[in-house]
Each structure stands twice: as C-alpha cells, then as structure tokens.
C-alpha cells in the first residue's frame, strides 16, 4: 500500500501511479509554466524601472473601477442613474473610469509597440492585448447604446449603417436595445476581464521584454550556444 505524504500532496507532488490522471497533468503544466516564484515574484529586471510599466497597472485599476461602478448601475437601473444625484454621480464615475481605462491602455500600447514587446516568443501576450483592446471598443460602443437617452438613440441609428455595411447587422443589431445591453453587461465585460487575466499571466510566465540592445544579435545562435 502506498503511503501518502501530506507535505508532498500540499507541495503538488503526486504519486507516481497517478501521473496519468488529468489533474496531475494540469497541475504539472501549471507548475512548469507558472511556478509560485514567477507568478508572484519578489524581484524584477532592472530595466523594468520605467514609468511606461505603470500604465498597464493603471489600466487594470481603471478596469476595476469600471466593473465596480457598472455593477452598481446594473443594480439600480436607468431611472436611478438619470434622475438621482447619486445615480448621476455613479454614472459619471462609470464614464470617466472608462475614459481613463482607454487613456492608460493607449499609452501602454504605444510603449509596448515602440519596445517591440512581441519579441522573444511573446506574440501571444501582444495578441491578447490587441484582443482586449478590440473587445473594449465593443464594450464602449454597446455602453453608449445602453444609456437609455437620445444620445444612445442617435448613436444606434448612425452605427447601424456601418454595422450593416460590414454585413453583421443581422447578428449584432445595434437597434436591439436588449441585445446591446446583454453584450455590454455580460459577454464583453467577461471577455475583457478574462483576456486581461490571461494577458497578465502570460506576462508573468514569459517575463517582460528586455531592451532591444540587451537582446542577442542572433537568437538562433544564442539558443544553440545555450544548449551546447
């Protein structure tokens, strides 16, 4: 009979006969890809000492504020955010946190673009950022459509021509308030938050991109040399 060591179990070390189980395989993958020291590191490379890196964190802070204020708006509803002073305040908080979210995200994007941050097998990190940006634009549009005012009506009638010209008006109908509201408060926030989490985990797994001048001139040679 195999003796189970409690310390080994807590450290994530399974029994050899359990190695084929899907739980053991997933745990092994996660431990190899994101060991705790890499997930929550104590130290970062010296080239991280730049204000540019602050803007990614600021983007997430603004996103938290967007989700929080949006959650309060969804609890109370349009009559509240249009008429009461507190409702108007929370509505404004939602708008301005979105403005800051896009502001910080664009500065973060410019910084990463000029660093060529997709270098060193970081293409997926870059692409998850791109998808988050696109999903955020969709969330912004559906947000404008969910205001329940004349502004929303005007934007929806203007947007329908563009959406129809692209050929997706039958599936994404900007004149359908219920559909737009569901996209705004369910599908798109879920997508933005989920892809943001994936983006951060990829940054943790692969590390931040080194400056171009610190990169080996020929990565293929460097890898071969490293193996040799």
């Amino acid at each position: 009979m195999t003796t189970i060591d409690r310390n080994d179990v807590e450290a994530g070390i399974g029994l050899p006969e359990d190695a084929d189980q899907w739980t053991a395989k997933i745990r092994g993958f996660l431990m190899r890809t994101l060991p705790p020291g890499r997930l929550i590191p104590d130290r970062q490379p010296s080239y991280m000492a730049s204000w540019i890196y602050i803007f990614g964190a600021l983007t997430m802070g603004a996103l938290a504020m967007v989700i929080l204020s949006g959650g309060i708006l969804s609890l109370e509803g349009p009559t509240w955010w249009h008429t009461s002073s507190v409702g108007l305040f929370v509505n404004s908080l939602h708008l301005w946190s979105v403005e800051l979210f896009f502001f910080f995200m664009v500065v973060h994007l410019w910084g990463k673009f000029f660093m060529a941050a997709w270098r060193g097998k970081r293409a997926l990190t870059w692409m998850t950022g791109v998808i988050t940006f696109l999903a955020s634009i969709g969330a912004g549009l559906t947000g404008y459509l969910s205001q329940t005012n004349f502004d929303a009506q005007w934007i929806s009638t203007q947007a329908k021509d563009g959406i129809n010209a692209v050929g997706i008006g039958a599936y994404f109908n900007v004149l359908n308030f219920g559909q737009m509201l569901m996209w705004h408060i369910m599908i798109l926030p879920l997508a933005v938050v989920a892809i943001t989490v994936l983006h951060v985990l990829l940054v943790r797994a692969r590390g931040i991109v080194p400056p171009i001048e610190l990169e080996p001139a020929d990565p293929a040679t460097a890898v071969a040399g490293g193996e040799g």
């Binding site: 730049s50 540019i52 664009v106 500065v107 910084g111």
Partner: peptide, 10 residues
C-alpha cells in the same frame, strides 16, 4: 494629453 503623457513617461 495621451501624447504628452507618453513623452513624459519616457
């Protein structure tokens, strides 16, 4: 403002 912030951050 974004351009000014970006240049300041660098």
């Amino acid at each position: 403002l974004m351009v000014v912030t970006f240049i300041a951050a660098i």
